[in-house]
Computed example of a mutant assay.
Amino acid sequence: MRRFLIPALLIASPAVAQPPLFDPAGYRIAHYRAPVRQAPAGVGRIAPAAAAQLVPGRDALFIDVLPAEGGHREADGRWRLVAPHESIPGAHWFPEAGRGAPGPGIDAWFAQGVARLTQGRRDRMLILFCRADCWMGWNAAKRLRAAGYTNVWWLAEGTDGWNDLKKPLSRVEPAGGATP
């Protein structure tokens, strides 16, 4: 009788449900470090070598959305960081803005920050990125395209691709500032 009890328990046990990878709007909400095959609809994909030919701030706005590892945003909007962040020189860093469901206040902070940087020009060239095989740059590019920006590009290889070109990275602070 004991021989049959274990297999019966295995068959009767419920399967562990996996969380969904995407929300109903198509934003990636889990397992952000995974291969990404194509840019979101209406967004161009730019190669690292092509991006390296542009001057940040003049030719395009480079927007980094990698999270602040271990850091968090205070109620007053300043960021508490536990480690410095290096990015493409001249990039504007909006930590957490690439999440599928950004935390409270992040969406508005991101939208207002980009509107300020573009001076309201929806046709300004925007290059969104994080790291290679990271859905956060993809999400942020999709979000800005949905907000009506018409010249949105996704640098799929992110800072990893920039590094592969032997281009330097430089320390950046979150848009709006950080606290020690």
Rank of each mutant, 00 (worst) to 15 (best):
P102R: 06
V172E: 10
E96D: 15
A101D: 11
R28Y: 00
Q38F: 08
G177V: 03
V65M: 07
D64V: 07
Q53F: 00
T179Q: 13
L169Y: 03
F110W: 15
G177W: 07
L144R: 08
T159Y: 02
I88E: 04
F62I: 13
R131M: 08
P19L: 15
A175H: 14
G137R: 05
R28M: 04
P180A: 15
A111N: 11
F22T: 13
L128N: 07
I63F: 05
G100Y: 01
A141H: 08
P48G: 14
A8I: 03
L21E: 12
G120E: 02
W154S: 01
G113F: 06
D23N: 15
P168A: 13
P40D: 04
I63H: 05
V16Q: 14
P104I: 02
W138H: 15
W154F: 09
R143N: 06
T159M: 08
V114K: 06
A91W: 01
T118Q: 07
L61K: 05
P104R: 15
A101N: 13
A47N: 12
F22P: 02
A141W: 12
L165H: 09
L61V: 07
A68M: 06
L5K: 06
V65Q: 11
R45H: 08
L128E: 02
H72F: 15
V114N: 04
R131F: 00
N163S: 15
R33G: 00
S87R: 02
P174E: 06
P104Y: 01
A178V: 09
P20Q: 12
G77M: 05
A39E: 14
A12D: 04
A83T: 11
F94R: 13
A108T: 13
V152K: 09
A75W: 01
A25H: 08
G71F: 08
A12T: 14
F22C: 00
E173I: 04
W135M: 05
E96N: 13
V172T: 07
D164N: 14
E74W: 02
H31T: 12
E74M: 10
Q119T: 06
A91K: 11
D23A: 10
L21C: 02
R145I: 00
A51S: 13
A83E: 14
